[in-house]
Amino acid sequence: MAMKDNSALTPGLAFDQPLLEKIESVPGLDVLVGSLERLMNWASTNSFFVFPMATSCCGIELMTVATGRFDVDRMGAVIRATPRHCDVMVVAGTITVKMAPRVKKLWDQMPEPKWCIAMGSCAISGDFYRDIYSVVPGIDTFLPVDVYIPGCPPNPDALYGGLMRLQDKIRARQAGTFEPREARPETAKMILPAVKRLEDGDRDPLLSQAQLAAAMGIGLNGRELHSHEQVVAVGNLAIGRNVLAAAYPQSDVEPVQEPAPQAKAEAVGGAEAAAEAP
């Protein structure tokens, strides 16, 4: 299986406008570009085509947004059931390890420009399922998330607010006034999931490769999945409680204590010496 380009995993690239780039490359059209940008800005922010990646209870709130009481059509947003029509993926619900490659594959099928919204605490961090074997601790470990909507589940109002925040973000991006979120060092004391986020500087590049390979390895009927050996080959990633405890010494994670080999040898030697002594 050929490894695909890794650029889809890099945050920030999801904001490219390929149509605009093509227009800008045509000589003589520079005059129009300013107004065309405003046109694209207006069009893309007021006609979100939402792909509902709804896996659990947040999906119910997502459905409510489309009903008459909240009526997301008022802001031009349409909920479509195919990723090829959509430009906003709303991940609403817990994403499991089995589901994550499917989500990644659907995300890759969406045309640029595209944005991702993490709706609810499960999509943001895994919430209280975070340490469970089968749950991905936050979708920003493999998707470039633009807007986080906290809540368990968030109200339809909150999702509405999140979509408007996304509009603001796109406008600010294109106006050049977007500021990335501030880094807060005090949050390093919190117990973070063992998997590095996409925007973490020390994220292992092997991790992105392995995630992409897993997403691309889904075959018909699940039979051509990535082999376990392939996954184990990159299994020495920064995953596990010992690595976590070493990375965040102030956290409450206790490393697993194993007896040092020297102490073991001394104990064995001492027993032998004691046996030889009499």
Partner: peptide, 26 residues
């Protein structure tokens, strides 16, 4: 039925650790 085809172990056994890592997603 529920887990991936290549999942190691059986999760609802009593001796299965709840935070068993499963690369590359955990």
């Amino acid at each position: 039925l529920m887990m991936d085809e290549d999942w190691p172990g059986h999760p609802l056994r009593r001796d299965y650790a709840i935070d068993t890592p499963h690369a590359p997603w955990r």
